[in-house]
Amino acid sequence: MITGLLNWFGDSAHWQGADGIPTRLLQHLGYTLLALVIALVIAVPLGLYVGHTGRGGVILVGAGNTIRALPTLGLVTFLFLIFTESETATIIGLVVLAVPPILAGTYAGLQATDKGVVDAAEGVGMTGWQRLWKVEVPISLPLVLGGIRNAVLQLVATAAVAAYVGLGGLGRFLLDGLAVLDYSQVVAGAILTTLLAIVLDLILAAVQRALVPKGVRLAAAAASGKTVIVGGTA
C-alpha cells in the first residue's frame, strides 16, 4: 500500500491537467471558502443579535441541533433533485452544515461575556451598539473564531460530497478510486483532504492569535490555570 501510494504521488500525470491534484485542490478550496463566506454572512449577524439581546436563544439552540442532525450527502442529493444544478445544491448543503457551529460560537461567545464588564460599559455611558462592538465582540472573539475554525474543518471534510453529484474537488479521488478499486488513489484523496484541513486550521489559528486582544488571551489563560508569562516573567 505504501509503495503504491508513493508511486501514485510520484506520477507526474496526477499533478497536471483537469484531473490533477492542483486543480482538484483549488476546486475543493473554492467550494469550502464560498460556503464559509455565505455561512458567515448568515450566522454571525444572527448570532450577534441573539447573543446581545438574549432573544430567541432557545429557538436558536434547538434549530442548530436539528440542522446538525441532517445528513449532508442526503441533503445535497435532495437539493440536487430540486435545483438540478450540482454546484448550487452542493453549496447550499455546505452552507447548511457550516451555519450551526458559527452561530453557536458567536452566540456562546456573547453569552459568556462577563455581565459585570457589560454593566460597567453601560455605566460609563456606552450605547448598546458601542457595548456590542467595543466590549462584547472583542471579549467573545475566541469562541466566535473557534466556531469558524470548527466550521472550516467540517466543510473541508464534507466538501468531498461534491463528487457524488458530478462536481470536482478532492472527493473525485475518493469516488473515482473506489470505482476502479484503486485504493492508493482513495488513500491519497483522504491524505490530501486531511492536509488541507490542517493547513487551513493553522492559518485560522494564526489569524485568531492576531485578532484576539492580548488582554483577552491572558485572561483566558489565567482562567484555565495556565502559567501566563508577561514581559519575560512567569
Rank of each mutant, 00 (worst) to 15 (best):
A151C: 09
L46K: 05
A69L: 13
L94D: 02
A18K: 14
H14D: 02
L5F: 00
P101W: 12
G128E: 11
V228M: 06
T158A: 09
A89M: 11
Q185W: 00
D176I: 10
A206F: 13
D114T: 09
A163G: 15
W15V: 03
T88P: 08
F173P: 01
H52N: 01
V199R: 09
T90C: 06
P142L: 02
V165C: 06
I91Q: 10
M126Q: 14
V137L: 13
T106Q: 02
L103R: 05
H14A: 01
G125A: 04
V61Q: 13
L6A: 05
L196K: 10
T106S: 01
I148H: 04
N7A: 09
L141K: 12
G64S: 11
A69P: 10
V230T: 07
V161F: 04
A18H: 15
A221M: 12
I82G: 04
L178M: 11
T193L: 12
L204I: 11
L170W: 07
I67E: 06
V44F: 11
L40D: 07
A223S: 14
Q208N: 05
A157T: 12
L94H: 03
T77V: 04
L103Q: 06
G168C: 05
I38C: 01
L75Q: 03
A18D: 13
L81Y: 11
V76I: 14
L25D: 07
T127K: 11
P22Y: 09
Q130H: 15
G147I: 15
H28I: 04
A151I: 11
R209P: 02
V118R: 14
V96Y: 06
G128P: 15
E136M: 14
L145P: 07
G20E: 02
G4C: 00
L170T: 07
P101L: 14
Y183L: 07
A221G: 15
G10K: 00
E136V: 02
D11A: 13
L145D: 10
L25H: 08
I2H: 00
P101G: 15
V44E: 02
A35R: 08
L202I: 11
K134F: 08
G177P: 05
L25I: 09
R217P: 03
P142T: 04
V199C: 07
L25A: 14
G123T: 12
K134Y: 10
L40N: 08
A210Q: 07
I191L: 03
Y31H: 10
L48H: 07
A18V: 15
G232Y: 15
V161P: 12
L40P: 01
G147M: 09
H14M: 03
L143M: 14
A89G: 11
V144N: 00
R172V: 06
L204Q: 06
A220Y: 13
L211N: 08
A221L: 12
G54V: 00
A63D: 02
L211D: 03
A121Q: 07
T158Y: 07
R68K: 15
I59M: 07
V212W: 09
L25K: 14
V137Q: 08
L97S: 08
A206L: 12
Y164G: 02
A190N: 01
P71Q: 13
T53E: 01
N150K: 04
